[in-house]
Design a protein around this nucleic acid. Structure first.
Lengths: 193, 193
DNA sequence: CTTTTCTCGAACAACGGTGTACGCCTTAAG
DNA sequence: CTTAAGGCGTACACCGTTGTTCGAGAAAAG
């Protein structure tokens, strides 16, 4: 039965791990403090079963974080950042918005569990791309230079986060938010005419 | 001793209530989930004494919320919202930023305690002024009209909140943030050239 | 069918938080 | 000084959450 010669996990076990991770991502995306009980219930699984797969709540959150990071890195590394900085930023924002909307507050849950060092490493990946693009846009005169780069990054993150909240509140649809995030950020970055 | 003919609170009692409220505002502004124990300790008061003045944690949070709301209303109602919408928005943003920076996450703590109805009423006051100003700016052609008003309000709130986080992180100073919030929001609202 | 793995509920200990009761001491007010 | 209000520590009950143990039973793999 050991198809890989080492572990030999049963089929329903793997399915349950999937369900648990899915439920955890969904719930943690809106409530970082959700209890293990609720996650297990949402996954259609007993709480004890969950503990059979993840030794602690922290381990579960860490596993979720890793999966989110993997998805994020994969999605963002596929984005073409060449050409006009404005167009590149629009592409990057669309992809990032989808990720923000999907994974939301997972990072907040992670911040209570992961070490600061791990958190830094997690943020570094996605942030590097945006950082480089903003700098290039400034150098080429496409983005305004009278604000700190760090502030502009903070603004981008704030708009994304705010959009997530607005969609959750029902003020706008997720589809509309794609366009609104793009236009708003580009307006905030644009050189003053 | 009853100066008002009814209650007759002792002097140190009133002082302690003050200390507790001050400490609660300070701590709740950064950690909405802070325990009663820590608040009492920060106020230089025993936990039991705190319960002597506030019957429950919820009551304390509510009292803090009322005080914050009062300060907010007073500060914002003094702002002149006439004249060029851009200038009025700049004035309103400066005052609002100071309040956001000072009171931060109190509203988050309140959201876990106050009823949705109370929360709505709390938000209504400050939001009404911004809402009216944004609408006037759109009507007079000062602000762009190709986005929902609600989105523009969400953007303003997001930038303020993001600025608070950035200052807390040490990315910018609170003073610089005043200018950055103003310029960023105005750029986001401006009609596209 | 047999074996092995996994599920699942119930029960339990530990922890941290809220809220209460009691008794002693400090201090403001007269 | 006398009195009463208030402060304060200890102890306790209560609750929700985490993490563990046990044993019976279901289900996958052979």
């Amino acid at each position: 039965m050991a198809t890989d010669g080492v572990t030999a996990k049963r089929a329903d076990a793997r399915r349950n791990v999937e369900s648990i991770l899915d439920a955890a991502i969904t719930l943690l995306a809106t409530d970082p403090g959700v209890s293990v009980n609720e996650i297990a219930k949402a996954a259609g699984v007993g709480r004890v079963t969950l503990y059979g797969h993840f030794p602690s709540r922290a381990a579960l959150v860490e596993a979720v974080s890793r999966q989110v990071i993997a998805s994020t890195d994969q999605a963002l590394s596929a984005i073409d950042l060449e050409g006009d900085p404005r167009d590149a930023m629009a592409r990057l924002l669309e992809a990032t918005w989808r990720l923000t909307h999907r994974f939301g507050a997972v990072v907040i849950a992670a911040s209570g569990v992961l070490t600061p060092e791990e958190m830094r490493r997690v943020h570094e990946g996605p942030a590097r791309r945006v950082h480089a693009l903003v700098k290039r846009g400034r150098d080429e005169g496409a983005f305004r230079r009278d604000m700190p780069v760090l502030w502009q990054l903070a603004t981008i993150q704030a708009v994304l986060h705010g959009a997530s909240a607005a969609v959750h509140r029902g003020d706008v649809t997720a589809d509309d938010a794609t366009r609104l995030v793009r236009d708003t950020v580009l307006a905030a970055l644009a050189v003053t005419s």
